[in-house]
Nucleic acid binder design. Structure first.
Length: 575
RNA sequence: UGCCCGGUGGUGUAAUGGUCAGCACAGCGGCUUUUGAUGCCGUUUGAGAAGGUUCGAAUCCCUCCCGGGCAACCA
């Protein structure tokens, strides 16, 4: 397939989603001033996960598609739980996924913005609002406000402070900033519509008092802007044209537009190519993955309670977990593309992610032989010295080359490749049968000896010297081919095997307080195994296919994590 | 029960008033195979319901049903 048709085939699949059509239209109508600008705006209070990867693909993907910029913006408007460590990890994870932020930036580095670097501007805008009679200070308690705000079906009651004159509001607001009030004592509200059926229009809080040190600005501020106020300002001041977020923000959109209107009135919208850039928000469905949870709070709980070994535990749906699991950036991106973008709330099969991972790894991972559940097989008629077999490093990519592997009288094979009393359709090793030892020779099993507990302790057999290389000189067919490791030279290593973290597709079926009830009792299993000598050279991060077994990633000296098993159409017990 | 959003095979999606509703994953069957992998071929399964507009509706309108969101000084 040539490059052109490949692109065409892809476009017919999922890339013409509603977001793309929306941006295409705006570009055609000249609303972008010649450049599409998007942004990815994480709050640095946790690690990003596969759900963020979907947003990343949308934000960076759309910018790339239209030749524009995508900013990375830390939405650090709530100092309570934000840290530099989280911010740095987010940057590392985004880079690892292959995305590069671009654009002027706010002076820290190109393409990078921090909401906190716009606090001065936000404060000035708030004062302008007060002067224009569009915002007022309110000292109702949160409980009192609940009553004033009312219920959606009926109009709310105006705050007693609603008609305070601007001069007094300005005075209180400045005292809020000066630190004269305790948390919650006063706040600043936008004066909009107490009768609106949209609760977010009923005089929302836009600034609150919060005596907490900010991870970058320390104690410079004791008042902080709320998301609904800050986000449209950030977008506008950065010249963002298309601002994408998840579905739950749909009802916030009128407020987003209200703030943008105010900025427009104040003449604060940036101009580009002779056009005023008016940022717009659209919403798409979050990613849900069957068999896991995606909420930052719940993931944090798993970490804090020691249910997993950390944010980067290979069972976690975090980007750092997936990296340690051996997933590739390309596979994760491909997965996100295939999931697509829509407004339908949905749950994606884990199988699709695994397919994307295998698809990528099949092309790129070097093959090695490793026996995870070893049992010894002895070639009783082997008399000569040890030999070497040469095997392709990757049969689907001849350019990967070959490697040599020792072979001798005693080898390890996998316990599951031998059946003393073979069931129907089992065509691996069994007494009286021939099987091919991959790359080496045809082996005829003559029997086995048992250990004290009755299990198979050692398998015996003979080899057909004329079949060296794997094919019988008389042309007879041998259906089964199994992998092996030479006992004399094999290296011992450790592997962690992972299963689903939860026992059901939807761990939240009984609500977020009971998801731990569905935690799988044994989602991680550690085994010691033998592998061909070439595996000893593996460096952390190297990915391999253990032939007939699965894909593994090196996680330390002679330590491996199973990324995903190979598909296996052999169904034991099925006739 | 106020407002907003959404309903296409098992799953995720495409189509934008005009061929038998397409693609992918999963499933199933077959061929190839020195990985029961990969590759290749085939195949099962779908418009939430009822009306209406139209020569023609997944697409437009209406009613109903179902699912989700919104009432933090979180984001």
């Amino acid at each position: 397939m040539n490059e052109e048709s490949e692109t065409a085939a892809k476009e017919s699949d999922t890339s013409r989603h509603f977001v793309r059509q929306w941006i295409e239209k705006d570009v055609a109508e000249g609303k972008t001033g010649g450049k599409v600008v998007t942004r990815f705006p994480p709050e640095p209070n946790g690690y990003i996960h596969i759900g963020h990867a979907k947003a990343l693909c949308a934000d960076f993907g759309m910018a790339a598609l239209f030749g524009g910029d995508c900013h990375l913006r830390f939405d650090d408007t709530n100092p309570a739980k934000e840290t530099d460590e989280f911010a740095e990890n987010i940057k590392r994870d985004i880079s690892w996924l292959g995305f590069r932020w671009s654009g002027p930036g706010d002076g820290t580095e190109p393409g990078l913005y921090n909401a906190s670097n716009m606090f001065d501007a936000m404060y000035a805008i708030a004062e302008n609002l007060i002067k224009a009679g569009q915002a007022y200070c309110c000292n109702l308690t949160q409980d009192e406000w609940k009553t004033y705000r009312g219920v959606p079906e009926k109009p709310g009651t105006p705050s007693p402070s609603r008609d305070t004159p601007p001069e007094r509001n300005l005075d209180i607001f400045r005292r809020m900033r000066a630190g004269e009030f305790a948390d919650g004592e006063w706040c600043l509200r936008a004066k909009i519509d107490m009768a609106s059926p949209n609760i977010h229009f009923r005089d929302p809080v836009i600034y609150r008092v919060r005596h907490a040190a900010h991870y970058h600005l320390g104690d410079k501020w004791c008042i902080y802007p709320m998301y609904d106020f800050a986000h449209p300002i950030e977008d506008a001041l950065e010249g963002v044209t298309h601002s994408m977020c998840s579905l739950e923000f749909e009802v916030h959109r009128p407020l987003y537009d209200w703030v943008v209107d105010r900025l427009d009135e104040m003449g604060m919208l940036v101009e580009r190519g002779g056009v005023k850039i008016r940022p717009q928000q659209r919403e798409f469905a979050r990613l849900n993955l069957a068999g896991t949870v995606m909420s930052k709070r719940l993931l944090r709980q798993l970490v804090d309670e020691g249910r997993v070994d950390g944010w980067d535990d290979p069972r976690m749906p975090t980007v750092s977990g997936m990296r340690r699991r051996g997933y590739t950036p390309a596979a994760i991106r491909e997965f996100c593309e295939r999931v697509g973008l829509s407004k339908v709330e949905s749950t994606t099969d884990f199988a699709l992610l695994e397919w994307c991972v295998r698809e990528d790894l099949n092309r790129t991972a070097l093959r090695r032989m490793a026996v995870l559940d070893p049992v010894k097989a002895v070639i009783d008629n082997w008399t000569g010295p040890a030999r070497e077999v040469e095997l392709p490093d990757n049969p689907v990519d001849p350019a990967a080359g070959t490697r040599k592997t020792p072979f001798g009288r005693e080898i390890w094979i996998d316990r599951s490749d031998f059946m003393e009393n073979p069931e129907p359709k089992f065509f691996r090793m069994a007494p009286g049968r021939e099987v091919r030892l991959r790359g080496a020779c045809i082996f005829k099993c003559t029997g086995c000896v048992h250990g004290p507990d009755g299990s198979v302790a050692e398998i015996h057999g003979t080899w057909d010297e004329g079949s060296w290389g794997g094919n019988a000189p008389d042309g007879r067919k041998v259906k089964g081919t199994i992998h092996w490791v030479d006992c004399a030279t094999g290296v011992e290593a450790r592997a962690d095997l992972f299963g689903p973290l939860f026992t059901v597709d939807d761990p939240l079926r009984d609500g977020p307080d009971r998801f731990l009830e569905y935690l799988a009792p044994e989602s991680k299993k550690t085994v010691r195994f033998y592998a061909e000598p070439a595996l000893a050279a593996a460096r952390p991060g190297d990915r391999f296919q253990f032939e007939r077994t699965g894909y593994f990633v090196c996680d330390g000296p002679l330590a491996f994590n199973r990324t995903v098993s190979l598909k296996d159409s052999f169904k034991p017990g099925v006739k």
